[in-house]
Design a protein around this nucleic acid. Sequence first.
DNA 1: GCAGGTTGTCGAAGCGCTTCGATTGCGGAG
DNA 2: CTCCGCAATCGAAGCGCTTCGACAACCTGC
Lengths: 339, 339
Amino acid sequence: MPVSIADVARHAGVSPSTVSYVLSGKRSISEDTRRRVQESIRVLGYRPHAGARALASSRSNTLALVVPLRSDVHVPVAMRFAVSVVTGARDHDHDVLLLTQAEGADGLRRVAGSSMVDAIIVMDVEIDDARIPVLRELGLPAVLIGVPADTDGLACVDLDFTEAGRLCVQHLAGLGHGRLAFVGEPPAVYERRTGFAERTLAGFREAARELGVPEPAVLPCEPTRAAAERAAADLLRDHPGTTGLVVQNEAAAEPLVAALRAAGRSVPGDLSVVAIGADDVAAAVAPALSSVGLPVEELAERAVELAVRGLDDGTPAGVTLLAPTLVDRSSTAPPPRRA
Amino acid sequence: MPVSIADVARHAGVSPSTVSYVLSGKRSISEDTRRRVQESIRVLGYRPHAGARALASSRSNTLALVVPLRSDVHVPVAMRFAVSVVTGARDHDHDVLLLTQAEGADGLRRVAGSSMVDAIIVMDVEIDDARIPVLRELGLPAVLIGVPADTDGLACVDLDFTEAGRLCVQHLAGLGHGRLAFVGEPPAVYERRTGFAERTLAGFREAARELGVPEPAVLPCEPTRAAAERAAADLLRDHPGTTGLVVQNEAAAEPLVAALRAAGRSVPGDLSVVAIGADDVAAAVAPALSSVGLPVEELAERAVELAVRGLDDGTPAGVTLLAPTLVDRSSTAPPPRRA
DNA sequence: GCAGGTTGTCGAAGCGCTTCGATTGCGGAG
DNA sequence: CTCCGCAATCGAAGCGCTTCGACAACCTGC
């Protein structure tokens, strides 16, 4: 039942090494031989043994992907990301080994040490992530989704969230909004210093300052309907003059807007809202929210590409920030005229 | 940098085979030698090369997990499942290779043929799933989450959804409800004959018949807020006498109940609601819904166990149905007295 | 005091692949 | 016409591990 390279070689009347070279293309093979070998492979249903291959070539053709399991990351987005990584990896003839955050640094050491994977992709990286030093000393290409404080020797991919924050302010200020507010991720996200949240806020505040908008209110928010409703109430009570709102919290966006409307505020009539995050979420709200989208698939693809490229060239390093774009939907308009 | 078993052997003053036996425990080793070897392993930081191991032992210690990417499966539940599978696999000293539905049967052939994995776990199985015959001929232990029509030679794990359906009816009928309705999964789920949906409905109807409850109304529902609101409206308009409602659709549960309350119906005062699905979703609704929970973690653990056990004993086979239990929360009560 | 077990260890033979010379024919440059 | 270089192929040496058979050394029981 198990067909080996020797069987193929025999069947095609060549040596095993020739079969190997046909498969890898690392040496030139005559057109005629190539075809004969490929036919034998087909007929016999040959599949190279992954372990043997890994042993001989010290390449496993497998990537490790570490997925978060925090309750405060938006799960559908994480899942989309994971699926995109698998898809992207397959395009580069790689497979994906799934690790959970819970395995931590030891898990990384384990899969790297036993040569199970030849590169690692890590999602949901914090600014001072404990895994960073480990990744660095592992000697494998590592790609982070997110940007930690010290990026030496590591490749990082992320949306340019600072710019995303600025973009929202610019958009709203451009429409004439003078009082802005920001509904963000849960406090825990800021506390553990997840880079994207921090940077968005920085960009948001910076742009506000530059454009002469008064210091905006910032309301962190748990990813529940009830919390979103509370945030809406708080906003209306404590910052009644607000006309421009930015939401960076996929789970809260819809209920927040719903609560505002339930409270008699029209969107965008009284209040303009811009979302930051997965585009599909923003587009599904009523009214569809103008948003700075998180390019999940593109991030995943970049990450895979960097990981795979890092195998040939040295460790890939440097920070890749994708430029954010704001898609204008039906949730933003000029502010109401002062009564 | 790469420490091999020979290095460990040298360091401990034994032969490589002895080190191997210390690691595997397949032959008796003196307490003294064992300790010496383990110490050498620790000192040198030795990690067996996974590929070499797989080659020599024809065991990769890796499971394949096929995750769904349909838009109509509830993603957070799928993710929880995947994470639980990884966790469970690690408890059995296995790793998990992630495959997407999109890879289909070829993906299964590929990972099996190249000996990357020694068992396969497949989520979201349909009644006539195209992958079933492939799984059967692969010669690897295969565990399905869900139950297809023909289960010969395959291991299946699932909640006993037929019983879950019955349970809901019994609970509601027991409280005195005489007119029931069922809000289910999106039509596509039924159309592609995903087992659990079909079986729930069967149990539901059967129990209704047995208990003399008139044929209940059944409303499929897309997993969106708008669809849930529509379902609520339809229900109130077309089946105004309904007092007991069963919802099997995690995404629709909350908005459905919210819509009913918005329409002036109190839950459970006017309408009792029972959910079928992930418990956390049901518990998060206001009011917390009585529900037949989907034991995600337990299903995953069982699946892993069957997969791993199948490696030693022959192919595991047979259908494991977990008994459902209904947790009574605050969404069910006797029906209102007829006016 | 010796046949017959155990127990603990070793050596060697693979597992199925890649890869590095080496070898054989070529065609073209000199 | 010779010599060189290149294209195409082969053989063999591993890669790092597991596992099987051998084999000493040590019981045990009679």
